[in-house]
């Protein structure tokens, strides 16, 4: 499964990264090399092996439905690149691409 420049551009779109043509070329080579090294996984016969998503055999970690104090609005907005003092301000969302 050799990775192509068009794959790289597609993935960059999914990851929301504006790459230059030069970066696309470099990344195609670099990712190709890394993927080449990790292709050994594809050659392993792991049929019937259960996947591990999590190293600890823990289950059912939940919290009680109890209110805990959160952040002040001032703190919430303190790192905002732009705000109107009440909400986060962003440019128009046409072109956000996807919607819930």
């Amino acid at each position: 499964m050799a990775i192509t420049e068009s794959d790289v551009r597609h993935v960059a779109m999914l990851a929301r990264l504006a790459l230059t043509d030069e970066q696309v070329t470099t990344l195609t080579a670099e990712l190709g090399s890394v993927l080449g090294h990790i292709d050994e996984l594809q050659r392993l016969d792991l049929t019937g092996v259960q996947p591990t998503a999590h190293p600890l055999a823990m289950t059912n970690r939940m919290r009680a439905d109890v209110i805990v104090p959160g952040l002040s609005r001032e703190a919430a907005l303190s790192n905002a690149p732009e705000s109107d003092g009440m909400a986060f301000l962003i440019p128009t969302i046409t072109g956000a691409g996807e919607e819930s």
Partner: peptide
């Protein structure tokens, strides 16, 4: 727009 903001801020 927001897409442009995402793409360039992250890059």
């Amino acid at each position: 727009d927001v897409l442009d903001l995402y793409m360039r801020s992250r890059a």
